[in-house]
């Protein structure tokens, strides 16, 4: 029996859409509808009688231009998926900037915890801080928005970790990543993010699908073979992301995420 899946997303849905196009036949007995919208346009919608309709011209334009649709009839699908939408490890890295918790190697090695500069917090406090941050992001907000209009299963796939490209050149925007890598705390940071994300999505009526293990490098990065050559989310033509883009994954990554989705909805 054919399963019907609707995959929503911001720019990160591009990798999944491209993988779907590039791999005809890889996922038999599945029909997929992609609904992409940049920024927070997905929230500029409303559930009306089981349909998701755009409530602004910008959202309507995004639906038509990127997906060729006017609305989404939610009940037509067996499962709904939200891809990326800012559910990223960056939320955990932001918390890691000024606090540490038991289990991180750097904390175990510290001789005077009270001297800082990082603060000692409990693991639950760190996790809840990250979860509170995630709650404000597009993914959980949109999942909750969907949940109000459907009883279908909702999944949220992790936004990819930043590219391992950052190891070659430090960036201010990823300074906590660099510190975590140097401190040996990357695996702990990864674990608390996944824990926080999973809990957050349950609270928003959805299930979290973590980043495919084989794409992760050093705990908090995405290996370059899954990032290099990523394309933008566009209506048709394939336009490369800038060469210094560290956020968007490519179709090879997208295929692995589609594998996860298909396994979840099977």
């Amino acid at each position: 029996m054919t399963k019907r899946v609707c995959i929503f997303g911001n720019s990160h849905v591009g990798a999944l859409k491209e993988a779907w196009t590039d791999n005809p036949g890889r996922w038999p007995r599945v029909e997929v509808q992609f609904v992409g919208a940049h920024k927070d346009l997905l929230l500029q919608t409303a559930s009306v009688d089981g349909r998701l309709v755009a409530t602004t011209e910008a959202a309507q334009r995004a639906f038509r231009t990127l997906s060729g649709i006017d609305e989404v009839t939610l009940r037509d699908f067996d499962a709904l998926v939200v891809a990326g939408c800012l559910v990223s490890l960056a939320n955990a890295a932001n918390t890691y900037r000024d606090c540490r918790w038991i289990g991180l190697p750097s904390l175990e090695a510290a001789t005077d915890l009270a001297d800082g500069p990082e603060r000692l917090v409990s693991y639950p406090a760190a996790r809840d801080t990250i979860a509170a941050s995630l709650t404000t992001r597009l993914g959980p907000r949109f999942a909750a928005h969907l949940r109000n209009g459907t009883d279908r299963p909702i999944y949220l796939t992790s936004q990819p970790r930043v590219s391992a490209l950052i190891k070659a050149k430090r960036r201010v925007s990823t300074r906590a990543h660099h510190v975590a890598l140097e401190n040996g705390d990357a695996d702990g940071l990864s674990a608390v993010f996944e824990d926080a994300a999973a809990r957050t999505m349950v609270e928003h009526g959805a299930q979290f699908i973590p980043q495919p293990t084989e794409t992760i490098e050093d705990g908090i990065l995405t290996a370059r073979p899954y990032m290099d050559g990523a394309n933008r989310l566009t209506a048709g033509a394939r336009i490369k992301q800038p060469s210094d883009d560290i956020m968007h994954a490519n179709a090879r990554y997208g295929a692995l995420v589609l594998d996860q989705i298909m396994a979840a909805v099977a």
């Binding site: 900037r97 603060r119 760190a126 809840d128 801080t129």
Partner: peptide, 16 residues
């Protein structure tokens, strides 16, 4: 003595 992490929301800070 123990200020909360900068990224901690007021609600989480109060809870802890």
């Amino acid at each position: 003595a123990e200020p909360p992490p900068r990224s901690m929301t007021d609600a989480v800070a109060k809870r802890y």
